[in-house]
């Protein structure tokens, strides 16, 4: 636990230190470059804002209407058998399909269970260690107009499932 916590805490400062130390060595105008990049950050958030509004409202409706609870209650006999935490089911289901929808769902789960609770941390780890697999495959194969994908979906989904299972295991072990 101590080491995990320590590595997690030093990771970001060390990456920042390496980048800045390297830039100093190369004698570039560090702060000017920083400002140029930081300005793009505003644009990134502005661009996804409408998407987030749509999805936060839709996910909020799914939860408040009781649909999420209903779906969980149907699947829970299976997930309970595998000792899979029910709360993260909606995230596991949406994560491969849509980045912004899974962001909305993850935020919803983290908020409702407590950001530093086991489920809150687990949802964060899953969100950080998986990708929008189906979307990525669609964009990459679509860009070169290829239809024969040679089971790439199987490999990618296996990776996703591994990511989720390892996340559960790691969280149970460390937190």
């Amino acid at each position: 636990m101590g080491i995990v916590r320590y590595i997690s805490i030093v990771a970001m400062p060390i990456v920042i230190l390496l980048i800045i130390a390297n830039a100093l060595k190369e004698k570039v105008a560090i702060f000017d470059i920083f400002l140029k990049g930081a300005k793009d950050g505003i644009e990134i958030v502005f661009k996804i804002f409408p998407t987030l509004v749509g999805l936060f409202v839709a996910i909020g409706m799914l939860r408040s209407s009781g649909v999420i609870e209903f779906i969980i209650s149907i699947i829970s006999p299976i997930t309970n058998f595998f000792k899979f935490p029910n709360e993260i089911l909606p995230l596991a289901m949406l994560r491969p399909i849509s980045g912004s929808a899974s962001m909305a769902v993850a935020t919803d789960i983290i908020k409702n269970n407590g950001v530093d609770s086991f489920i809150g941390i687990l949802a964060s780890v899953i969100m950080g260690s998986t990708e929008t697999t189906l979307y990525t495959i669609a964009v990459y194969t679509g860009s070169v107009r290829i239809k024969k994908t040679r089971f790439i979906l199987v490999a990618s989904l296996l990776a996703d499932i591994t990511g989720i299972l390892v996340s559960i295991w790691v969280c149970r072990y460390f937190f």
Binding site: V4, R5, I7, S8, I9, A11, M12, D116, I121, S124, V125, I126, G128, S129, T130, A155, S156, L158, A159, D160, T162, G163, I164, V166, S167, V170, C171, F174
Partner: peptide, 17 residues
Amino acid sequence: IIIFPVWIATICAAIVG
């Protein structure tokens, strides 16, 4: 606090993939 756990999960997923 999640960074190191994320690394472990990512690496395992990437290896399997």
